[in-house]
């Protein structure tokens, strides 16, 4: 009997130790999908910089996935030291529901905690056969628009809000007209993918749709990957300033005792090296004067409006448009 017990204990111990990672990263950055290459570069540069300054070697791990899913993972216990997500609302949720960082986190870093920004542009088929130039072209009959479901994709919320903001400005603040515009736009959407990746697959691989609403950085990146002979980027005259936000997760860094390093990591994004890398990876740097002018030249001129100007705040935009029974749901109810 005794022998058997100790044998069982041994097996259990072996099984458990298999789950405990032997070496852990010093810093976990929980990010969203298209930042993979960007943060790979950042991590490398930061590690060198950190070692030069503090004499410590450091290993940074980055996790990527849909922004909303990543936020929920952090709320549910993924021990992120810093979060770098697609929209401030996701970090708001971590602050509100997980109480892992203060509600005023956005004021702690320059430029509303957005070290780099982007916007929403149109990816069209080579030669732009449907002649799509502006937002108003998207609601024309016969134009097929690919955009994911804003209920399940954070990126798609920027698409939706960009369209709404454009229509609101064009009609001088008439919300009914804006709603009619966005409704007409979604009538032209043949499939509501659940995420940005799925929408890109639909557009690129399935060959479905005339125009893909996409983040500028992703559009520029995919042109590079898929070959410029297949697609063109069309920059509308006006669009939304998409601010992917970054924040320190106070509770987690307190537990890990790496606050100084996490702070240095986020501040590093605002340094000349960080800003240069952002521009290199097609994000618009918040301090363009620090970036390489050749990289900056790739960004088209677009009149950008901030979310706060049009919708007040993310919380309000979320409540009005994307909550259960909100404006977006109404588009499909009235069908």
């Amino acid at each position: 009997m005794r022998f058997r017990h100790s044998a069982i204990r041994l097996v259990l111990a072996a099984a458990l130790s298999a789950f405990v990672p032997g070496t852990q990263a010093d810093l976990l950055n929980v990010s969203y999908d298209p930042t993979r290459e960007f943060y790979k570069d950042i991590n490398q540069q930061f590690a060198a910089d950190w070692q030069a300054k503090s004499g410590q070697r450091t290993r940074i791990q980055t996790s990527h996935g849909g922004s909303g899913k990543q936020a929920r993972a952090v709320i549910d216990g993924l021990e992120a030291d810093v979060v770098t997500l697609a929209l401030a609302y996701d970090i708001d949720s971590i602050a509100e529901r997980g109480a892992l960082l203060p509600a005023d986190w956005q004021a702690r870093l320059p430029n509303h905690s957005a070290p780099y920004t982007s916007t929403i542009v149109f990816l069209v088929r080579k030669g732009n056969p449907k002649g799509i130039k502006t937002w108003d072209d998207l609601v024309k009959p016969g134009v097929s628009v690919i955009t994911p479901n804003p209920k399940t994709s954070g990126g798609a919320r920027w698409n939706y809000l960009a369209a709404w903001g454009h229509a609101l400005k064009a009609s001088k603040g008439d919300a009914a007209k804006a709603k009619a515009f966005v409704t007409a736009l979604f009538r032209n959407v043949p499939v509501l993918d659940t995420g940005a990746r799925g929408a890109t697959t639909t557009f690129v691989q399935r060959g479905l749709g005339d125009v893909l609403l996409a983040w500028e950085n992703e559009a520029l990146l995919s042109i590079g990957e898929l070959g410029p002979d297949k697609f063109d980027i069309v920059a509308p005259a006006d669009s939304i300033l998409a601010e992917p936000s970054v924040a320190l997760v106070d509770k987690n860094v307190a537990r890990h005792g790496n606050r100084a390093e996490a702070e240095a990591y986020l501040n590093f994004l605002y340094t000349p090296v960080g800003q240069k890398l952002a521009a290199k990876h097609y994000f618009r740097p918040s301090k363009p004067e620090l970036a390489d002018p050749a990289d900056l030249a790739r960004f088209p001129k677009i009149a950008l409006f901030r979310l706060d100007e049009v919708f007040g705040s993310w919380a309000q935009a979320q409540k009005t448009h994307f909550a259960d029974g909100g404006q977006f749901d109404q588009i499909y109810q009235s069908k």
Partner: peptide
């Protein structure tokens, strides 16, 4: 296609 009321399956609604 995931259109509400038309091709939206219950598990997707759970995710939403």
């Amino acid at each position: 296609g995931n259109f509400p009321l038309v091709s939206e399956i219950a598990p997707l609604l759970i995710i939403i």
